[in-house]
Design a protein around this nucleic acid. Sequence first.
DNA 1: TAAAAATCTACTTAATCGATAGAAATAAAA
DNA 2: TTTTATTTCTATCGATTAAGTAGATTTTTA
Lengths: 153, 153
Amino acid sequence: MINKKTKYALKALIYLAREYEKGPILISVLARDENIPKKFLELILLTLKNNGVLQSRMGKGGGYFLACHPRAINVGQVIRILEGPLAPVQCVSETAYARCEECESEELCGIRMVMKDVRDAMAEILDSTSLADVLEKIENAKQKESKILNFVI
Amino acid sequence: MINKKTKYALKALIYLAREYEKGPILISVLARDENIPKKFLELILLTLKNNGVLQSRMGKGGGYFLACHPRAINVGQVIRILEGPLAPVQCVSETAYARCEECESEELCGIRMVMKDVRDAMAEILDSTSLADVLEKIENAKQKESKILNFVI
DNA sequence: TAAAAATCTACTTAATCGATAGAAATAAAA
DNA sequence: TTTTATTTCTATCGATTAAGTAGATTTTTA
């Protein structure tokens, strides 16, 4: 299970992706619209900024905005920033590999073999899904919903 | 990242799968051979028993053994017992579904759509990999290793 | 009845989660 | 230059979980 921080981060980023190139967005607006505790959101946005996903402007007229195009930010990246590596065990992590201490032979570890497949499957999905893709998915779902509604009416 | 409890559980189960139908195995033997703190392992085996994966006999000549054939116990099941649901967010869990409070429309939640795919991919792998499969994988890896060794010599 | 096992209950220590508080730095506008 | 609006930094909090330990109890067999 991903933690709330990560969920909030994704919510905020999807929001900012929708508002891309419409100027800086206030933390307070984001917090209100997405129902996120403001002070908590501050920390989250800051770490996203420190990791190059967001940019900000201080002072009047300031706020946060995406550091690059929504197509250039993917969900895997965001999860790794807030949650750490995707891999279920560190010995199969591509971004934060570390040997499992107590494990004798890495090559012959059954757990490792299974978890490698899991990691790869997760990474395949998360690293290939950009914020733009997420927006698109939402749009598609809306289309579908309105079609059904139309049909019912 | 899965926790140590889960890792220990899988190690123990793989061990017991290898010794399937050779009678009960002592906690102390398991703890020694797999390098797991004995007292900690006790708790783990007990919860595995309480969840129907293991059986035990008390007293002299007692110990733990698999409750069913290694082909009938899969990794997903074990992880769910010790770690909880596979799903990254509760609203896509098949085994422990719950609505995300703050989420307005489940159907239109982008995070949910992505995480649904992730959950399905994980479940696909973990629920289709039995303890017997893991043993097989290990055997294959051993074969491969010895072949390479032979080639070098 | 003694020994050998699993089982149960409770505790510990450290870390992490989900926040909150308040002051400091910065930028723009008046 | 001062005020105002904003982000940024540092610290703290209470609750929960992780990883393990301790010790007494129950059950079984020989």
